[in-house]
Amino acid sequence: MNFWQTILPVLAALLLAPLLPGVIARVKAAVAGRRGPPLCQLYFDLWKLLRKGAVYSRTTTWVFRAAPGIALAALLCALPLLPAPGADALVSCSGSMFILIGLLALARFATVAAALDTGSSFEGMGGSREVQFAALAEPAVLLALAALARASGTCALGGMFAGTVGPLWQTAAPAVGLLAVALGIVLLAENCRIPFDDPNTHLELTMIHEVMVLDYGGPDLAFILYGAALKLWVFGTLLVNLLVPWQDAARPLAGTGVLIVGLVAVAIAIGLIESALARLRLLKVPQLLLGAGALAGLGLLLIVRL
């Protein structure tokens, strides 16, 4: 396996992840007839935040100060596990899909603990909703990845997509479509996009992810924003890998190029969804996530029956 082929996607993630929220914002603005913020707005924000001081609540402890770093560390460690279209992952081992799930859960634990550390009822509410959504989303992710594991014969994320997805699209297109929809729903839920959570809302009662990080500023907030962009990248990569039936990438640049183009497309799709849909009533969210689980389970069933 070519070294560059596997390390390029990781570098791309580190450098380009903050671009995705920019793309989404631009798409939403365009649909609404506005010009919107610059594509690189998040880079500017990060640069500005990294140069600031910080303000902490007197209630908080070291947990609050360490949480953004821990969450970001978990996401950074997840990056080498991800494959690029047609290529293996930088770090590939049997069962890396469970490591990915575990790392995401660690990031969640840190964020929610920090939210509870502020003693604010709003942040507690955000944390409570976050863990609820995650509890329902996790089985869906597992089922979707298990279906791919079945098709590829490995549960290493690296080997799961390359060379499997292409034939699978030919033999079981409906099943792969179901998996893609399920992963898409989970992507929206995990990244707190509409219809689960409105990242643009300014009413604390209705926020989920944003409300958990209300008390952060300065470098900590920069870590959090960067981490959120990376999380979008992680889920987006899984989705792109599933949707692009790329057979082999002999040239290192090609796989990464496809990945980046695919991710931008995913971001555009998210922007369109956010423009077209309204937020779901909170009571309906579990149903949608259960639905995602049902779709993934159905996809798995179809692939097992092949």
């Binding site: 409906p174 049902a294 179809l302």
Partner: peptide
């Protein structure tokens, strides 16, 4: 394997889920 047929059948299944869920 008949692709169109399979797709139709999967859509039928999905419509069942929606019927149950709405």
């Amino acid at each position: 394997m008949n692709h169109i047929l399979d797709t139709l059948l999967v859509i039928l299944l999905l419509s069942c889920f929606l019927l149950l869920g709405t």
